[in-house]
Design a protein around this nucleic acid. Structure first.
Lengths: 152, 152
DNA sequence: CCACATTCAATTGCGAACAATTAAATGTGA
DNA sequence: TCACATTTAATTGTTCGCAATTGAATGTGG
């Protein structure tokens, strides 16, 4: 059996890009936590709000496609946002299968309060915008290749 | 109020590196799922096994430091691994506060069965090893900068 | 030696994340 | 029209992930 040097061993934790991504996601989450606490949002809830701030009055499925989440995750999350008076859930009259998610006035208003969040994250990243954009594009490309494999 | 072009608006979902990382982590998880199902492991359990395959008989805290997880996550996870006969948990006699995690023979044996996992992931990434290593190093550096901010 | 702080794991409670199933509404082909 | 498939959310059950707390063991200063 060929002996591998530690820096090349693919079975080592530190050599795995997936662990890098996994642990970076958690690190982001910890940085976001205090910022989002002030808004009364969790990070996944913040993502849903970002979607809705771009376009309102959309079915659950549309939100799910943008965030790669299913109804099992979104249904209870959206109920919590509704309980917090940030969104309203109403069944579509055109297609009774769909539930449309609309922002309440408070939900719209929260966008302004959230405006400083991205720059706080940028500061914590301690990195230039152009570097972050380049990394983001690489990671998105990787994600899309992975997602392409799943649908096979 | 200055109007921002959509490609620069920092409040847009698609412009956020954290969402790229978040969604890439989930994509990885979905690719891993069928591979790890055969081993009877979840992804976080697989990470713990990677740590233990490198070094055995370590306290819970050491595993937590490597994976950035706390006892609230690890204690139940390790109990499941023990129920699956992959690890043994024993209180240290030198320091009764610590619980040492050791691999069982089955736990050791699983390393061989898991050997093909990294190359399956590499194939799904559809990317050269050198590109992945470069990305991994960038992401780890970002993660470490984020974690540095948290401890302030 | 003793009061006190610190360390470590376990526990509790809440919010994701996802697989699998269910139920209702809608679409489709014969 | 009617049987059947498809679509959409909701539901159930399991596993993370983390904050906050608890309790036991260990370390420290006086």
């Amino acid at each position: 059996m060929a002996r591998k040097s530690a820096t090349l061993d693919p079975q080592r934790l530190d050599n795995q890009i997936c662990f890098a991504v996994y642990s970076a996601a958690h690190a982001f989450n910890r940085v976001y936590k205090p910022l989002l606490d002030r808004l009364g949002l969790t990070y996944p809830q913040y993502l849903v709000m970002l979607v809705l701030w771009e376009r309102d009055d959309v079915p659950v499925k549309d939100i799910g496609e943008k965030l790669f989440l299913d109804s099992g995750t979104l249904t209870p999350l959206l109920k919590r946002l509704e309980a917090a008076h940030l969104v309203k859930r109403t069944r579509s009259s055109e297609d009774e299968r769909q539930v449309l998610i609309a922002l309440t006035p408070q939900g719209h208003a929260l966008k302004d309060k959230a405006r400083s969040v991205p720059q706080s994250i940028l500061a914590a990243s301690d990195c230039s915008v152009s570097e972050l954009v380049a990394m983001k594009d690489e990671i998105v490309a990787l994600r899309d290749r992975l997602n392409a494999v799943i649908g096979e």
